[in-house]
Computed example of a mutant assay.
Amino acid sequence: MNVPAISSKTHRTTIGDFELTILTDGTYWLDGGAMFGVVPKPLWSKRVAADDQNRITLGLNSLLIRGNGKNILVETGIGPKLGEKQQQIYGNQSALLHSFETLKLSPDDIDVVINTHLHFDHCGWNTYYKDGRATPTFPRATYYAQQGEWEHAQEQHDRDKVSYISDNYDPLINAGQMKLLKGDAEIAPGVRVKMFPGHTRNLQAVIIESQGKTACYISDLIPTSAHLDPTWVMGYDLDPILCIDNRKKFYDVAIPEKWLVAFTHDHEHPFAYVERDERGKPVPRYL
């Protein structure tokens, strides 16, 4: 399968006292039409190239937050659990631990793992199989997710049950290693989560604040920098109207306050500031 090579570039920046580094689990394919919903292909294809099967390349960006004596990891990619057929469909590389090696970092060094939601492409390396059992990849870490997200995953609704793999989170919850939140919360000094539902009912973003500066891992509310238009929502979004409304609310704060935005699925430009062009539309200014 013709899968793009994983970028060797290190995306790193600082926000006050925090160092922010993108770690990658590689890339994967998804259908371009699904990623842009009702937006016609002649429009979205001006920003993103599709292959002959209408697939586009997406990144699997985790964010490493280092500061105040803590190593905090946001998201863990697709990971190693997909079967052979699924791997052929997605073409993923399960490269996150290689990213750790590149930084001379061990999974034991991670203190906190935050999942913005529990879709398989965001929490796959939460665990790995050892002797047939799901085992924590980050043995010292406390994991965080939203309780409502986990409850929805348990429903196994026909609409999105394919997005959930219980071994990514249930063993952690049962062992007391994953804590389930009920809404906005502070995770550590300078690092908090805030609810931005739309993609899922309980999607949370991660906000980093230090020395008057702010960064936000916005997750699938805005999956790539090609999705900045408020109405360019995904076919995967459970509530596209709520997604549009929450994008607008996000821009109302993030643009005037000059927040740095980290995109979960933009393999070329994981960081950008969002500004408004002469027509008032949000556009990226890349690092």
Rank of each mutant, 00 (worst) to 15 (best):
A226M: 12
D158K: 01
D184N: 04
N115I: 15
G280Q: 07
F100R: 03
D277G: 02
I208V: 15
L96D: 06
K81L: 15
E278C: 10
D31N: 14
F196S: 01
R276Y: 14
P136E: 14
A50H: 09
N246M: 07
D17V: 01
D252F: 12
I110N: 01
R133M: 12
N202F: 12
V191H: 01
K81F: 15
P171T: 09
G32C: 09
Y164W: 11
H157C: 12
T231K: 03
I165N: 00
K179D: 12
F36M: 05
V253C: 02
G37A: 06
W29V: 08
V113K: 01
V253F: 07
P282Y: 08
A153Q: 10
Y90F: 15
A188R: 04
N168M: 13
H122L: 14
G132A: 08
L118W: 09
A141N: 03
D239F: 05
I6C: 02
K104Q: 13
F250A: 02
Y286C: 06
Y286Q: 05
Q87K: 09
T231D: 10
I22G: 00
S106Y: 13
E84D: 15
V3F: 08
Y129N: 07
L23A: 02
G235V: 10
R276I: 15
S7F: 14
S106K: 08
T200S: 02
K258S: 14
G212T: 01
Q87L: 13
D131G: 03
V38M: 05
V193C: 00
K46F: 13
H122N: 05
D277V: 15
G148T: 06
I15M: 01
Q147R: 01
P40A: 05
I6P: 01
A254C: 05
L60F: 06
P230M: 12
E151P: 00
R140S: 08
V38C: 05
T142M: 10
T142G: 01
I255K: 00
A188L: 11
V74Q: 02
A134V: 13
I114M: 03
H119V: 14
T135V: 04
V206Q: 00
P230L: 10
Y169N: 02
K104I: 13
C216V: 14
D277P: 00
H119I: 13
S94P: 04
V162K: 01
G59V: 14
T21M: 09
M178A: 01
G33Y: 15
D229I: 10
E84G: 03
N54V: 14
A262D: 05
N202I: 09
D266Q: 04
T24K: 03
Q146Y: 02
G280K: 06
T27V: 15
L82Q: 05
L73V: 13
H152W: 15
L20T: 03
H117M: 13
G190E: 03
K194W: 11
F36V: 07
G280N: 09
A185R: 04
D109N: 04
R66L: 09
H152D: 10
S163E: 12
M35S: 04
P284K: 08
A34V: 15
Q53K: 06
G16N: 06
G183F: 07
F100I: 11
T102G: 09
I56A: 00
H269P: 07
A95R: 02
F36L: 07
P139G: 10
H157P: 04
S8T: 11
S7M: 06
H265K: 04
K130W: 12
M178V: 09
V113S: 01
I173G: 00
P4M: 14
I241E: 12
D239A: 03
K9E: 15
N246W: 10
W232A: 09
